[in-house]
Each structure stands twice: as structure tokens, then as C-alpha cells.
């Protein structure tokens, strides 16, 4: 019987606390609420509509300071894209570009195009910042960053709070 316990222990001890946490799903599903709570000052909250083919969520790590969502790609490699939500971000080395989100500024910082795409993309808004870190395998095309970037949406915190008040309890975020 003890051997059974030992075997079960070996099998279970590798279960990560963060490995199975769902990613934030637009508008209010998955870990959206708790991601919003990780940076209370952030006026925008990141979420995913649907990931492009070949991409999957590897881990979601959320605490009182930030959220980190790691994505794997069958073409670009494990951990090819990592999304961060923080209070601030350093854009001093990045270049300002046109943003697809009306309430957020976008900055791009490309370190290497090929082989092995390396870059960071920042979305800065009131009270917070979302940062993509891309680190692709040598054979992967940089266009994969476009595909996965399109899956990201930013929802205004107030919209999320209003939905919560209406559908769940009277409290907002």
C-alpha cells in the first residue's frame, strides 16, 4: 500500500499550480477577472478571443503584482510568445507604432528578425501595460507574431466591472 502511495506521489508531485489555469477569455471568461485584479490600476484588461491554429496556452501565472501568460506554438516552439500585464513597462528602447487599440499606445522593439524572431511589443495605457515577448525557433516565420497578436484584445476595465455588477454580484472590480 505504501508503494502505491509512493507511485501516486511521484505521479502527482509534478502537477503545477499554474499549469492548468485557463487564460483570460473575452469578455469575462477564464481568468479574466483575476487577471484584472492582478493590476488594479490598469484601465484595460487583456483577453483572448481564440488562438490561431497551432497555438496553445502553456501556463498562466497571476498574482497581486502582474499576470504572465505563456503560449506554445507547434511552429514557433514552446514559450514562443509570452504576454505580461504589469503596472509599468520600459519602452525607452522601443519604437512607437500605430496601435490597433484606441485607448492604448503601441511600441515595438525588434531584436532579431531571422534566424529566430526575437521582439517585444508594448501596449501602454492608463495604469498599466501589456507586453508581448516573442522568442521563436530558428525555422519559424516572424509572421506567426502577427497571427497570435491578432488574438489579443483589450477590454476596458469599466466594461468588465459593469458586466460583473449586472450578471453576478452588485460589486465591481
Amino acid at each position: 500500500m505504501l508503494a502505491t502511495l509512493v507511485s501516486a506521489l511521484a505521479a502527482s508531485a509534478g502537477c503545477s499550480a499554474t499549469a492548468t489555469m485557463p487564460a483570460p477569455e473575452c469578455p469575462m471568461g477564464g481568468s479574466s477577472l483575476i487577471v484584472a485584479q492582478s493590476v488594479p490600476s490598469a484601465s484595460q484588461v487583456p483577453c483572448f478571443e481564440s488562438l490561431p491554429e497551432g497555438w496553445s496556452v502553456s501556463s498562466v501565472d497571476v498574482n497581486q503584482d502582474r499576470s504572465v501568460i505563456r503560449l506554445d506554438s507547434d511552429r514557433a516552439g514552446p514559450g514562443a510568445a509570452i504576454l505580461h500585464l504589469d503596472r509599468t513597462c520600459d519602452v525607452s528602447a522601443a519604437v512607437s507604432t500605430a496601435s490597433e487599440f484606441p485607448d492604448a499606445e503601441r511600441f515595438d522593439q525588434i531584436e532579431q528578425l531571422a534566424p529566430g524572431f526575437r521582439a517585444s511589443r508594448f501596449y501602454r495605457f492608463d495604469g498599466g501595460c501589456v507586453r508581448w515577448d516573442f522568442a521563436f525557433d530558428h525555422n519559424a516565420s516572424a509572421t506567426e507574431a502577427v497571427a497570435v497578436g491578432d488574438a489579443l484584445h483589450l477590454i476596458p476595465r469599466q466594461e468588465l466591472s459593469d458586466r460583473l455588477s449586472e450578471t453576478f454580484v452588485g460589486e465591481g472590480l
Partner: peptide, 26 residues
């Protein structure tokens, strides 16, 4: 803990100022 938390997905207390440290669902 992991299985239950990921199934229930309860956020931290809503509408209150959180002053402590935490990780994951509540």
C-alpha cells in the same frame, strides 16, 4: 486545490482593496 480552483475560477474578493499578497484563484 488546483483542480477545484481551475474548475470554480473564483476571483479574489470583489469591490474591496486588496492589501495582501496572493497567487491564483481564491
Amino acid at each position: 486545490m488546483t483542480a477545484t480552483a481551475d474548475g470554480i475560477r473564483r476571483p479574489r474578493p470583489l469591490g474591496l482593496t486588496i492589501t495582501g499578497e496572493w497567487e491564483g484563484f481564491a
